[in-house]
């Protein structure tokens, strides 16, 4: 029935993640980058089954990768292609999901080849840092410690700091949403002060309340719905990160900047009532 046939198989990447030089998966941001002067290199492109195509920009997460993925997402938000369903940005990859029947004009074209063309057209457009990309900054109020952050003592002890210093270091940093995943609206935030890096809990909790702010290794994040979880909980926010009745149900998106603002227990109660 199909009029297309494939001469060469799509390549599965021969990536070797074992390169020891890059075991640290979180790189420092690239230095000496001046806008408009850098040509981004070609990402690796490979299939995820018959309905997905992946762009892998790098093997380590850094500011450049994050910026490129964001630029591609902005491009895709404007793009209208029949059969292109959705995209999922992650740390170093951008995955596009498609309906092979529709993108191939009902089997007349080779679906993967067609998707490769669409992706190449995108990369040709999005090849240098965009000057107009001012990141969205979201402030998240957090009541640290006490019953809202039962693990703050453990984090402080692990870091050899006081609880007040943990709060200061956590709240003074600027974070970037590396990706949203695990649960609806759950942000993986990059930018945690290395002094606060703490291993996950040995025994995960069976239920972590929504709004809990946690640390796991070099990452920090906010639980968006009640779920089991193993992150070290240091505080809680009254803000809702998952709002199913809104057209943009996740408060945060990949690429957003986040700052945590300490609040008192009384402020927490007041804002919590307001949010619900």
């Amino acid at each position: 029935m199909q009029r297309w046939s494939r001469t060469s198989q799509a390549q599965i990447p021969a990536t070797n993640f074992a390169d020891k030089r890059e075991l640290n998966l979180f790189n420092q941001p690239m230095q000496n980058q001046r806008r408009g002067q850098i040509q981004w290199s070609q990402p690796q492109i490979y299939p995820l089954g018959d309905s997905g195509i992946v762009l892998q920009f790098s093997r380590v997460y850094n500011a450049e990768v994050q910026q490129r993925i964001r630029a591609c997402c902005t491009y895709l938000d404007q793009l209208q292609v029949t059969g292109l369903l959705e995209y999922v940005p992650a740390y170093t990859t951008l995955t596009l999901y498609y309906n092979p029947w529709l993108v191939s004009e009902e089997g007349r074209l080779d679906p993967y080849a067609r998707m490769t063309e669409i992706v190449q057209a995108m990369l040709a457009q999005v090849h240098t840092p965009q000057p107009e990309m001012a990141p969205t900054l979201v402030e998240i109020p957090v009541c640290y410690g006490g019953k809202w952050g039962p693990d703050i003592e453990e984090v402080a002890r692990y870091a050899g700091l006081s609880e007040a210093e943990v709060v200061r270091l956590h709240a003074e940093a600027e974070y970037v949403v590396a990706m949203v995943g695990f649960a609806p609206g759950f942000p993986y935030l990059a930018g945690l002060n290395k002094q606060l890096a703490t291993p996950r809990k040995h025994q995960p909790r069976t239920l972590v309340p929504a709004g809990s702010v946690g640390i796991a290794g070099q990452q920090t994040g906010v639980y968006s719905i009640p779920t089991p979880g193993g992150w070290q909980l240091i505080g809680r926010t009254p803000r809702r990160l998952f709002r199913p009745r809104q057209e943009n149900p996740s408060l945060l998106r990949a690429g957003y900047q986040v700052r945590f603002v300490p609040i008192t227990a009384a402020e927490f109660e007041q804002q919590n009532r307001h949010e619900s």
């Binding site: 199909q2 299939p47 018959d50 029947w101 191939s104 993967y112």
Partner: peptide, 13 residues
């Protein structure tokens, strides 16, 4: 193969 998988997809449609 991927090509086969996509042919199967189209056949189902």
């Amino acid at each position: 193969s991927l090509a086969k998988a996509q042919r199967l997809y189209c056949q189902q449609e």
